[in-house]
Amino acid sequence: MSSKETRLWHAVILQAITDATLPLDVRTLRERLDRQRARDWFLMNDDDYRAACYRADLDPDRVRRYVLPLIAEATKLDLPPPERKSRKPRAPTGRIIEHNGKAMTLVAWAIELGLSKQALYDRLQRGMPLAEALTKSPPRKPRRRATTTPGVGQHRAKSIHDRHIPSAQETPKLEIF
């Protein structure tokens, strides 16, 4: 392995050591998870960890013997994770649409009709009457049928004066025995 690759893997190991040996005292969940994953990487001693050490030209067991006491010290300074604030249930913020004795939001109507919210919104934006937008089934695109016969294709001519010439594509008859 080249010296540049070895230095790169040294940097990977060093960053993991830095992350693993810092206390879990951060407020953002992402940083906290990154630090915990770095700790787990050293604690698990799995194939990925060992491969990274070998690529950095380091002895994985020696690195672990160095890092584990540092992780233990950092763990003493860990703060508990911040409590998640419970969210109050929110009323739907969308406009309530009344039709045929039902009052629902645009999203609820879309679910009721089996449409996407965007499709229903587009119908109303194009000026489709509300009654038609809320009762009309989604437009179906016609299936495209094959226009050529199986085995027959169109070959482009190589010259601009030539025209398209249909040709049969023969399937070779194979006899195994």
Results as ranks from 00 to 15, higher is better:
Ser2Cys: 08
Lys4Phe: 09
Ala11Thr: 07
Leu14Asp: 12
Gln15Ala: 08
Ala16Lys: 15
Thr18Val: 04
Asp19Leu: 14
Ala20Met: 03
Thr21Gln: 02
Arg27Met: 07
Leu29Asp: 08
Leu29Arg: 15
Glu31Gly: 06
Glu31Thr: 10
Arg32His: 06
Arg35Leu: 04
Arg37Thr: 07
Ala38Gln: 05
Ala38Arg: 07
Asn45Met: 05
Asp47His: 09
Arg50Tyr: 00
Ala51Asn: 08
Ala56Phe: 02
Pro60Asp: 07
Arg64Leu: 03
Arg65Tyr: 02
Leu68Phe: 05
Leu70Thr: 01
Ile71Arg: 07
Ile71Val: 11
Glu73Phe: 02
Ala74Gln: 03
Leu77Ile: 00
Asp78Met: 04
Lys85Ser: 11
Ser86Asn: 11
Arg87Gly: 05
Lys88Leu: 07
Pro89Ala: 15
Gly94Tyr: 15
Ile96Leu: 15
Ile97Asn: 09
His99Phe: 13
His99Gly: 01
Asn100Tyr: 01
Lys102Pro: 00
Lys102Val: 09
Ala103Cys: 08
Val107Ala: 15
Gly114Thr: 08
Gln118Asn: 09
Leu120Lys: 05
Leu120Tyr: 10
Leu120Ala: 11
Arg123His: 14
Gln125Lys: 12
Arg126Val: 01
Gly127Val: 06
Gly127Glu: 02
Gly127Thr: 06
Pro129Val: 01
Ala131Ile: 02
Ala133Leu: 10
Ala133Glu: 07
Ala133Lys: 10
Leu134Asp: 07
Thr135Cys: 08
Thr135Ala: 12
Ser137Asp: 10
Thr147Gly: 13
Thr148Leu: 15
Thr149Val: 14
His155Val: 14
Arg156Leu: 10
Ser159Pro: 00
His161Ala: 12
Asp162Leu: 12
Gln169Lys: 13
Pro172Asp: 11
Leu174Trp: 06
Glu175His: 14
Ile176Phe: 13
